[in-house]
Amino acid sequence: MLEFDQVSKSYAGGFVALDRVSFKLEKGEMAFLTGHSGAGKSTLLKLISLIERPSVGRVLINDVDLSRIRRPLIPYVRRDIGIIFQNHRLLMNHTVFDNVALPLVIEGFSGKDMVKRVHAALDKVGLLDKVRCLPQTLSGGEQQRVGIARAVVNKPPLLLADEPTGNLDPDLSKDIMRVFEAFNQVGVSVLVATHDLGLVARMKYRTLTLKQGKMINDGLLQYQEDPL
């Protein structure tokens, strides 16, 4: 469903963030993306969500080459991809409810239907009691979870997460991973970029490892034998 075909990305100034990366993620598959800080994880996710365009190579979703998507259509592509951002990206002067409801409002939901979905999403991340709070009044981990609820609220078929457990304690991290697993079990493809190698090793999912922009491992991660 998601396919990278010899994708390279160099930023202005000639820095090569991704170097001939190829992989495929099937429909309903869940995978981790790991690597050192600066290895290119966020860059890879940006190429999928059309925040950046590849310098060379093709990124395909369901055999549609994303380079063929013209600018006015980008929003519609993003609606199909739930994205959890490394730095939350919440609307700071709107309530948790408004934040989570945003993707629904954009797609024209309103009324009871919308409220029901927002509450369901917040329930999954355990924040139903914070509906009326402003993000500032939440802890870092709670803000992260609001971001997760927002990403999943419109049930996207592809879910991308960038360090979703960066601010969470181990127990909460596990809970969040369970949320992703639950989504994966109903057919959503999930790609999670993370540093948390312990968690990755325990979860036994396919793991893509980047090192200085190159894909050096694709498969189960042997944490003990191959420390990064």
Partner: peptide, 16 residues
């Protein structure tokens, strides 16, 4: 600006 960026990231069109 930040708010607009977030809206674009979750799929809002310019018109919206």
């Amino acid at each position: 600006k930040d708010e607009i960026e977030v809206m674009k990231l979750v799929g809002a069109t310019d018109a919206f």
